[in-house]
Nucleic acid binder design. Structure first.
Length: 303
DNA sequence: GGGACGCTGTCTGTTACATCA
DNA sequence: AGTGATGTAACAGACAGCGTC
């Protein structure tokens, strides 16, 4: 258990969290009307460690942690702070005067320190605040993401300024957004390929069966002569591409070209083969062919 | 020219918090 | 009220590209 007198010192010297390590921040706190680090203020406010925690919680209850700070974070970018370690250090850029620290920032810092002592005492892990973005902020970010899914420093700065966020927050949001987009695309890819696989498996099964039937019929020429070929046309519901008549010099492969979003059938005679036969889902929009693989080729194992 | 080095941005996996059922 | 699932902000580490020496 930490002594009261030690608390201020340890808070200012022992921050393992890089975000709070800037001495200017502590200086600003020391000169603020909410100064909690001067011994009297601190001990008055938080007489003991246990009571500290409770008072912190009580004191901070009802504070909107998402409140847009009254200052911008241009200094952060100007100082070239864009690394993952810069999240909170931006609160105390070198160019900022102590006067620029607002009460809300102080409360945030206070909360952080209170929480730090909580986590330090309770689990020893570093605390990190999680700020929920507002709907408006998210909407603007989404709009911006639609236009360009990466940001150059100027765009990031402008967006951060517009939203009242730190550039680092905008940066992180875009990182996470790209990751989510990629994940979703991967899921779509997976679903599409699974459907392809299912349909091809079914088609393979059907062809095997047909081969078997033909072999049987071959043994009885009379039937074979009377039989009409089991030809069916296949039309893609999206592009309305219809598999054409049998090519004179047909290869033995059934090829699906996802890039063209259409199916090319080149067998000895057309067969009813469609990827979409069992799926109401339209063609998957393919954007990254490198990840998809360019061609899917099904060789008839019997030929 | 090219290797070492530092800087920067992005990707990827993970963690921790907020929210909801 | 407690709890698990889910979404996501934030983080850390790896990596690639680029400029400089």
């Amino acid at each position: 258990m930490m002594e009261n007198q030690d608390l201020g010192l340890s808070l200012s010297l022992n921050f393992s969290d890089k975000r709070t390590a800037n001495p200017l921040q502590l200086n600003s706190l020391a000169s603020s009307p909410f100064n909690l680090f001067q011994k009297n203020s601190w001990t008055d406010s938080f007489p003991s460690s246990d009571q500290n925690l409770e008072k912190c919680r009580t004191f901070l209850k009802g504070i909107d942690v998402n409140r847009v700070p009254s200052i911008t974070y241009e200094e952060e970018e100007e100082a070239g702070v864009s690394s993952p370690n810069s999240t909170i250090s931006s609160l105390s850029g070198n160019k900022r005067s102590e006067r620029e620290i607002t009460c809300y920032e102080e409360l945030e810092i206070m909360e952080r320190e209170c929480s730090r002592s909580i986590s330090d005492e309770e689990d020893g892990e570093t605390y990190r605040k999680k700020l929920r973005l507002t709907k408006d902020q998210s909407a603007v970010l989404e709009e911006s993401f639609k236009e360009h899914n990466t940001l150059n420093p100027k765009q990031k700065q402008a967006l951060a300024k517009r939203l009242g966020l730190r550039p680092r927050q905008v940066e992180v949001w875009f990182q996470n957004r790209r990751a989510r987009t990629k994940l979703k695309q991967t899921e779509v890819d997976c679903e599409f390929l699974k459907r392809c696989c299912d349909n091809l498996t079914e088609e393979n099964r059907r062809l095997q069966k047909e081969v078997q039937e033909l072999r049987t019929l071959k043994l009885s020429p009379q039937f074979y002569m009377q039989m009409t070929p089991p030809t069916t046309l296949t039309m893609c519901p999206s592009c309305e591409h219809v598999a054409g008549p049998p090519a004179p010099s047909a290869s033995r492969s059934t090829t699906i070209d996802p890039r063209a979003n259409q199916m090319v059938l080149s067998q000895r005679r057309p067969v009813s083969f469609t990827l979409w036969a069992t799926s109401p889902v339209p063609h998957r929009p393919i954007r990254q062919f490198g990840q998809m693989g360019s061609l899917l080729i099904l060789e008839n194992p019997r030929t």
